[in-house]
Nucleic acid binder design. Sequence first.
DNA 1: CCAAAAGTGTTGGCTATACACCCATGC
DNA 2: GCATGGGTGTATAGCCAACACTTTTGG
Lengths: 228, 228
Amino acid sequence: MAVAVDLVIFTVRDGRLHVLLIERGNMPHRGEAALPGGFVRDGEALDATARRELREETGVVGDTLHLEQLHAYGAPERDPRGRIVSIAYLALGPDLPTPKAGTDAAAAHWTPVSSILHGQVTLAFDHEQILRDGLERARSQLEHTTIAAAFCKEPFTIADLRQIYEAVWGVPLDPSNFRRKVMKTDGFVVPIGERRLPEVGRPAGLFRRGPAETLTPPLMRSGNVGLR
Amino acid sequence: MAVAVDLVIFTVRDGRLHVLLIERGNMPHRGEAALPGGFVRDGEALDATARRELREETGVVGDTLHLEQLHAYGAPERDPRGRIVSIAYLALGPDLPTPKAGTDAAAAHWTPVSSILHGQVTLAFDHEQILRDGLERARSQLEHTTIAAAFCKEPFTIADLRQIYEAVWGVPLDPSNFRRKVMKTDGFVVPIGERRLPEVGRPAGLFRRGPAETLTPPLMRSGNVGLR
DNA sequence: CCAAAAGTGTTGGCTATACACCCATGC
DNA sequence: GCATGGGTGTATAGCCAACACTTTTGG
């Protein structure tokens, strides 16, 4: 029985949620889109496999990224090569560099999540289910934790942070309430005392990530409308 | 590489949270306390393994129990027999029958969770970490979902349900506010129009589980005091 | 060169809701 | 003694309005 790790890597580019997909270079499903991933090596912890694959696929040192285990998928028929149990990981990061092709991947692309949810892109194996689970986890994490800041390159503005929420949840948020909530949550963001010169509009205050990790009470989303 | 399933089975007995532990009948850790579990068989889905082990260890048909995947544990040195990745499952149920010994278990007992957290009972492998993760998941689930009702034998009173929360969270709740919250949440519980004759005090209304699954807004716990 | 408009960020107020805390009543 | 119900103050979300600061446009 083989154990693999698959990665759901999210980022937000120009206001839309994207996921990193590879074009499979080997059989099965050669040429189809799939989540990046690979097998766990002897003596390698699951988290280590995830970080290694992350590095191999995106070239990003995992320490700067949020990475958490998502779910284990083990349906007997999920992989035609045989019995493969896959541990899925969720990774969140700021607009990452254009990924390079990995060992098993012919090419890697940032793909809008909405295009997969709307059926314009189909994924190999059970990867669409994994993606949906990852999206739901990310949405939930935004409610209860401060990981939204992990999507932002520092320094960032409150509006940048709000756009993360809007992109992941697919709903517009009230700028006023959002700002109040973020500022009142101790340690969510810390001001650096500078302002961003805008192309248009009033200059926005700049912030860094704070030490806080949990949001109590949570930042609630009324309803899920979907992704733009 | 072997894949196993371990179970964190919780129930509430006389106001305290209990977990099902076995006394290991085989090496390694023979004679020590551990979570019930076993290896995934060929062609068997992960959930099926969990339900089978649940049945073998407790004699309970899994359909009546809440069962969900918790986390995958895969540290290279977690099992001296070799590389074993374990998928942990969380099961919640009403005061279950005294379990019978399973294949790999010399004996099975309901053990107060507090006795493990306070160091009076130690668990084999990394099972204490799994238990802690399961407890945290259960506490979180009580906030956001209606699974607390899964702990109650039907029919139950509002006070029964409240005792579940108090046992899992380890904090007392205001009976008045709790009642309002539960009654206002559409589909959490449905009255059956009868009353339970009490040993002392006013008779309490009886209820069954409703169709609702999520709690919006969540039922919040102010802080974690611990387990009694 | 100056004035107005447009766009974005920031601040504040109002109202409905939910909850914590306390008290009253029924059985 | 416990279940049930109500009442009040506080905190917060949703909604709305005003203001601040900048760039662009038009004379």
